[in-house]
Write a protein that binds this DNA or RNA. Structure first.
Length: 597
RNA sequence: GGUCGCGUAGCUCAGGGGAUAGAGCAACGGCCUUCUAAGCCGUCGGUCGCAGGUUCGAUUCCUGCCGCGAUCACCA
């Protein structure tokens, strides 16, 4: 609850006690912000209180309204509309609010508290192919959520878990050895991650041909898939890898390094960074130890083929395999170990995993197994389950070549940004700072497009809409900021006062000014709610509403031309605060704002 | 089939036990000799999937149904 809402809540209880000598249940006191189409700031819904007052809604509203404005100084006037009591805060309240907000160093932000950190895992790429649109949503969400948590005072640790081992990377290695002719990022001019991805795709193509050939010879599809020569080689390579074969490990290190160099460029461009990177190759054995310990303690079971399982049937789930019959570990085993390591590393109050909703079951099982093994910190794990990104033609499918590559997408957005800027006659390539601006605007468009959607929901990525820079978009908000900066620069040059001196009369604020003031007033509550709900979308939608309110104000209310010095000072103060809040809200989303555009 | 999630304007999305359900895009019409028109204003557009239930009040909560999706691997 924002402060006035809480105040009205408490005041209402006092009013009801005084007027009707009864204490209402909390649930009977329904307070909300007054809808913009009615006069007032906060609204009390009367219906639940009629049982106590035993009077008509109108009479009850009038009695409570009168009591509030005579006994509580914050409330100035009230209006009764049907069963609703609409109350107005005093102009003094708003004046003090704006002054206080201007004085605050970081309005809406809670300083980092000294407490156990929140560890957030996101990105989590495989090293066999470049990042794509799905990773983009993941990375942007992770980055924004960390920013938002930090703004709520939580110490945050950003971690990445790189899946650098397993059959997938062996496939790229086999294909590269067989068909690569020693090709390197340098010799080919390709980014390392793209180069590796090329061989992963090549593996798949050749393997499929082999499978088709074997099937033609009479093998079943299932057998053919396993016995195709290329697959046999990949499995053999994985076996050698696990045994620590020098040659295989050296190749693996070399090829993974190419991928990391490629990832680093993409991360840098996306504005994503981590405090700590875990590598599955370094953690997967830890999980194995955990499982063997659980087995000793009879919390897990070994079957006759010597595979190890967690039995979750008494919790309504199935059994889950943790060690294969050959003793090797599966994904779950690795994740158990990583979770434990992370807990030991940071002793976090909460571990957030930013992972797609396709893994809901996995995280449910992960938590249950950890509990079963006796780790009560398992309840600190929170799976931030986000929806898949889909294209107008449906899901992305690598087989059908519909996967949208992250680098390509950012390139395309940059190009659109440049064209748009030049077409509008703003900035053109070659101008001072032009490249930085195109980059800032294009990334802003992409990030905002992705983050404005509720993380829980699947989202449609329509390329045509993503490059629209009008309406509810990142560039719209960036543009609003640029206008604000322009106004403030001019005000400074003209020596105008951009602060309050106490002489200003807030009673004369018009509707456009009040709309901005109220929007600014909501910001801390939005940051809080976004942190609680781990929802960057709430910040995005707020930033848009604020920008929209500002543009309405900008259109109809003169600022620099206002001759009344006090009025101008209020307006400039509103402009200044709006700029600050837009800048900070966008920064929470990982989006920069320009001085000009 | 079991489990979970989602169905709001032509499209993409907000909202959410309360007042006439909101934006953007698309379509149409206005506003640049005045602070950046990547803007502003207006028109058009809805039985909030369907049916019950709880409630003074349901689009919001509950149940069932229909539709869409995810998942239920010795894949990750």
């Amino acid at each position: 609850m924002t402060r006035p809402e809480k105040l009205l809540f408490q005041n209402t209880i006092a009013a009801v006690q005084a007027l009707y000598h009864t204490t209402p249940d909390d649930s009977m006191v329904s307070v909300q912000r007054t809808r913009t189409d009615f006069e007032g700031d906060y609204t009390l819904v009367l219906f639940p209180l009629l049982r106590i007052s035993k009077k008509s809604p109108e009479d009850t509203a009038a009695e409570i309204g009168n009591w509030l404005i005579t006994h509580r100084e914050e409330w100035e006037t009230f209006q009764v509309v049907k069963g609703f009591l609409n109350l107005k805060l005093t102009t003094a309240y708003w004046k003090h609010f704006l002054q206080a907000a201007l004085d605050e160093r970081d309005y809406g932000v809670i300083p980092i508290k000294k407490e156990a950190p929140v560890v957030v895992e996101y990105s989590s790429p495989n090293t066999n192919k470049p990042l794509h649109l799905g990773h983009i949503r993941n990375n942007f969400l992770g980055e924004a959520i960390c920013n938002i948590l930090a703004a709520n005072g939580f110490p945050v640790v950003r971690v990445n878990l790189v899946n650098d081992r397993g059959i997938h990377i062996c496939k790229s290695m086999v294909a590269w050895l067989k068909f690569g002719n020693g090709e390197t990022p340098e010799s080919s001019g390709m980014k390392g991650d793209h180069l590796i991805g090329k061989y992963y795709v090549l593996f798949d193509q050749v393997w499929k041909k082999e499978v088709a050939g074997l099937v033609a010879q009479g093998l079943s599809d299932e057998v053919a898939r396993e016995e195709a020569p290329l697959m046999v080689e990949a499995r053999e390579m994985l076996r050698k890898w696990e045994q620590g074969d020098r040659v295989v490990r050296d190749l693996w290190l070399r090829m993974n390094e190419w991928v990391y160099e490629g990832f680093a460029l993409t991360y840098q461009r996306m504005g994503v960074h981590f405090d700590k990177t875990y590598y599955e190759s370094e953690t997967y054995l830890l999980g194995k130890d955990l499982v063997l310990k659980g087995l000793e303690e009879k919390k897990l079971v070994r079957k006759s083929d010597s595979s190890v399982w967690a039995d979750l049937s008494d919790e309504g789930l199935d059994e889950k395999i943790l060690l294969r019959s050959d003793g090797t570990s599966v994904y779950m085993t690795q994740d158990l170990g990583t979770a434990n390591l992370r807990f030991l590393d940071y002793g976090p109050q909460k571990m957030v995993y930013v992972v797609g909703n396709e893994q809901n079951y996995h995280f449910d099982v992960l938590q249950r197994i950890l509990h079963k093994l006796g780790y009560d910190w398992a309840s600190r794990i929170f799976h931030l389950s986000y929806g898949m990104v889909e294209l107008p033609q449906g899901k992305m499918k690598s087989r059908e070549g519909t996967v949208v590559d992250a680098d390509d997408l950012m390139d395309a957005m940059y190009e659109t940004s440049r064209q748009m800027s030049e077409a509008l006659g703003k900035v053109k390539a070659g101008d001072q700072g032009a490249e930085a601006l195109f980059s800032l605007v294009s990334l802003g468009a992409l990030k905002y497009f992705i983050l404005k959607v509720d993380p829980k929901k699947k989202m449609l990525f329509n390329p045509e809409e993503s490059i629209d820079f009008n309406g509810n978009t990142g560039p719209f908000i960036q543009y609003t900021y640029a206008r604000i900066r322009s106004l403030l620069r001019k005000a400074e040059n003209q020596g105008k006062r951009i602060s309050l001196n106490g002489d200003e009369d807030f009673a004369v604020l018009n509707q456009a000014e009040m709309a901005i003031l109220k929007a600014l007033h909501e910001y801390p509550e939005i940051v809080r709610a976004a942190g609680e709900g781990l929802s960057p979308a709430m910040i995005a939608n707020y930033a848009y509403d604020l920008a929209k309110a500002f543009n309405g104000f900008y259109q109809e209310v003169p600022v620099l031309k206002e001759e009344d010095e006090n009025k101008a000072a209020i307006r400039l103060s509103l402009v200044l605060m709006t700029g600050r809040v837009i800048q900070r809200a966008m920064a929470l989303l990982g989006i920069a704002v320009p001085e000009r555009m």
